[in-house]
């Protein structure tokens, strides 16, 4: 059997190694991005959150805390945003909302 296989080996095209390299890399890289992804986007996420928040409320740059905790089979994204003490106008707005 081995001899036949060896003889046929010359005729049957080998699986191209570059293709194997590509497939292995695609898997390894996608795992890598999932594992290390937490640090990648956090600074930008924090920045974008700040930009959006600033449209609506006056927040201090240091008052936005973004943390990602990873456990065995899930991740928890924790956002901690301390809003400034409410002013009178915002309180009355809140009352209006309640009235509706």
């Amino acid at each position: 059997m081995n001899i036949i296989r060896k003889l046929l080996g010359g005729l049957i095209p080998q699986r191209k190694s570059a293709k194997m390299a590509r497939e292995r890399l695609q898997i390894v890289v996608s795992h890598q991005r999932n594992d290390g992804g937490d640090v990648d986007f956090l600074p930008r996420l924090r920045h974008e959150l700040l930009t959006v928040l600033c449209k609506y409320v006056k927040v201090d740059k240091d008052q936005v805390n973004v943390q990602l905790q990873r456990m065995d089979n899930c991740s928890v994204l924790e956002l901690n945003i301390t809003l400034p003490a409410p002013t009178k106008s915002s309180l009355s707005e809140l009352d209006e909302v309640k009235a509706i």
């Binding site: 890289v29 991005r33 290390g36 990648d40 986007f41 930008r44």
Partner: peptide, 25 residues
């Protein structure tokens, strides 16, 4: 080559998060 490409992917992740520009968004 596989190990070089994988390491480049890692370093791209680092470039996206750990430069001064990245910290400034």
């Amino acid at each position: 080559e596989v190990s070089s490409v994988r390491d480049s992917d890692r370093i791209i992740g680092v470039l996206n998060s750990r430069t001064r520009h990245a910290e400034q968004g």
